[in-house]
Nucleic acid binder design. Structure first.
Lengths: 144, 144
DNA sequence: TTGACAAATAAGAATTATTCCTATATAGTA
DNA sequence: TACTATATAGGAATAATTCTTATTTGTCAA
């Protein structure tokens, strides 16, 4: 039984139990707002989305919850130059192209990049949990 | 005649002329504070360093100057998770390991990584100016 | 089911990093 | 040397995030 066969609620409940965190309506609704979001939302985008369900939720709760989801391994923070932190719900191996002008991040897949070996001298000194090729330059809209 | 054989002042003067920017003492001293810095200083670190030479320089001038150096191709902004923006004076191809806990960035070289080919579908859509492998995890101090 | 308690939340204040504004100073040049 | 556009200092403003505190709410054990 893999993740895909569990519904979103069950994934969240399992992860919360593992991490000894309570299953609150806020956490549930924030998680729902992220499922199938293949973009790279900021905390504020998620906040606006969740407010439609819980009008008086605070930004702090959204921000704190997103960071706890990162700790729980449900999300990643996108590396990048931009100021508002961006989150990534896609936990599968993929790579990024970031536009230096508009800060847009474009995901792409590449099996050659996925297969890169971590150098021995790095593996022996550090615990490596993520690996990604980051390309930068100008996107199609900005290069004109 | 390559860059290495020019002294720092001359590199800066040439770049400023190219960009039609004036050669001010502030720019000169900020540039001097960066030469041979193989760390990844924040604007504030540079500000503290430069204040020893120009006690009443403003943070804004340092920040603005660093960003203009990025535009001029004298520096790069480090991709990464941390909040204070970090600058990189090493323009040669290298790769990064970033600690998720302390946000420290460790440079490493790897000729295999340097040789990675940009996928055709990316090269045809975008202008790619940078390429780097980014590893993340826990550094030696934080993994305990 | 209820009560107790630790954890989570809302609201707003505080902090942190960066950028903007404006009056003054200065580099480049004619 | 004088002119002009650019750069700077200083402080205010903005933006993003995190902290503080009083209150509320899951969870668990009786």
């Amino acid at each position: 039984m893999n993740k895909q066969s569990l519904d979103a609620g069950e994934v969240l409940r399992n992860k919360c139990r593992e991490a000894n965190l309570k299953i609150t309506p806020q956490r549930t609704i924030i998680f729902d707002a992220l499922v199938n979001d293949k973009g790279h939302p900021t905390a504020d985008i998620v906040f606006q989305r969740v407010r439609k369900k819980i009008p008086n939720i605070s930004f702090d709760t959204v921000s704190r919850t997103l960071l706890s989801f990162v700790d729980m391994g449900l999300l990643k923070v996108v590396e990048g130059h931009g100021r508002p932190k961006r989150f990534d719900t896609d936990l599968d191996s993929h790579h990024h192209f970031q536009c230096l002008k508009c800060n847009k991040i474009i995901d792409f897949c590449n099996t050659g990049f996925d297969a890169l070996e971590i150098p021995k001298e790095i593996k022996s000194r550090f615990t490596v949990t993520g690996k990604k090729v980051v390309l930068e330059g100008l996107c199609d809209s900005c290069k004109r």
